[in-house]
């Protein structure tokens, strides 16, 4: 193993340190910016759906229509498509998950906030564990017993028994550990990398224009700043897409657990 190091002069490139925030109310308190974003995001989603559903009418108004189509999107194209008819039972969880994640992700491109709270691994990890508990619970209920659930999962019929020694741990780890882990890592590092790229383009552009200066610096810095605007829209798309993927895979795991009846 060989290591090397390159020293960068002048410009302090953004790194993982940019994701660590000090407490908002001075030393000794615990409330940080990602936590504030989480609270704001939850409140925003709750208020939106409360207002949309408050005076529900047969002919929906604008707000009610927006709320209904948002909820209907999760119901039809996530729950019903990937779980089937039984999916209707899980729509409340899936809708909550989707809109909570979407709010936390999109906070990365909202001015002033400008930090996707989900790039801190604790948020996606906790949600992935919740999804994991739910689909295992559903599978255990469907298989009528913990033992039979794990037997179905780890010992699929039609394989000579000595091979089970090789395969059973693989099945177990892939269902119980790898599934929530990939959910977590996919979301976290999409948000992490997206935020890092935005910060790099904006701070780098600013440094080139104001510090490096000269014709080259101002030209390159302007291109970088203009690029950051395009990237902001692209980042918004990625943030919504990742919220969708997380919810969709949770739904698919629940659907898979329901389908495993032998």
């Amino acid at each position: 193993m060989t290591t090397w190091s390159i020293a960068a002069e002048g410009f302090q490139s953004p790194g993982p340190a940019d994701f660590v925030y000090p407490p908002l109310f001075g030393e000794g308190t615990f409330f940080t910016k990602p936590m504030l974003i989480t609270v704001l995001g939850s409140v925003a989603v709750a208020v939106f759906f409360y207002l949309a559903a408050r005076r529900a009418q047969r002919v929906p108004g604008k707000l009610q229509y927006a709320g209904e189509s948002a909820y209907g999107f999760v119901r039809n194209s996530i729950a019903l498509d990937s779980i089937g008819k039984e999916g209707i039972k899980y729509v409340p969880y899936l809708a909550t998950l989707f809109f909570f994640l979407a709010a936390l992700n999109i906070s990365g491109i909202i001015p002033v906030l400008q930090f996707p709270a989900t790039s801190r691994i604790a948020f996606p990890l906790f949600l992935a564990v919740v999804s994991c508990v739910i689909f295992n619970y559903v599978g255990i209920r469907r298989a009528h017993g913990v033992g039979r659930y794990f037997k179905q999962m780890m010992f699929p019929a039609g394989i000579p028994w000595p091979v089970y020694i090789l395969l059973a741990p693989i099945e177990f780890v892939s269902t119980i550990i790898i599934r929530p882990l990939t959910l977590t890592l996919r979301l976290t590092f999409n948000m992490f990398a997206g935020h890092l790229v935005l910060v790099l383009f904006i701070l780098g552009g600013e440094y080139l224009v104001f510090e490096y200066s000269g014709v080259v610096g101002i030209l390159a810095g302007s291109i970088s700043l203009l690029g950051s605007i395009v990237l902001t829209f692209f980042e918004g798309f990625v943030q919504l897409l990742q919220a969708y993927v997380f919810t969709l895979l949770s739904a698919l795991y629940i659907g898979g657990a329901l389908a495993d009846e032998h």
Partner: peptide, 26 residues
């Protein structure tokens, strides 16, 4: 569209997960 495509996505991620966990465990 819909269910069949969803099934394909789930299968692809399932295959990925199985190989990852095989290499990881052993």
């Amino acid at each position: 569209t819909g269910a069949a495509r969803r099934k394909g996505e789930a299968d692809a991620w399932g295959a990925f997960g199985l190989i990852i966990s095989g290499v990881l465990v052993w």
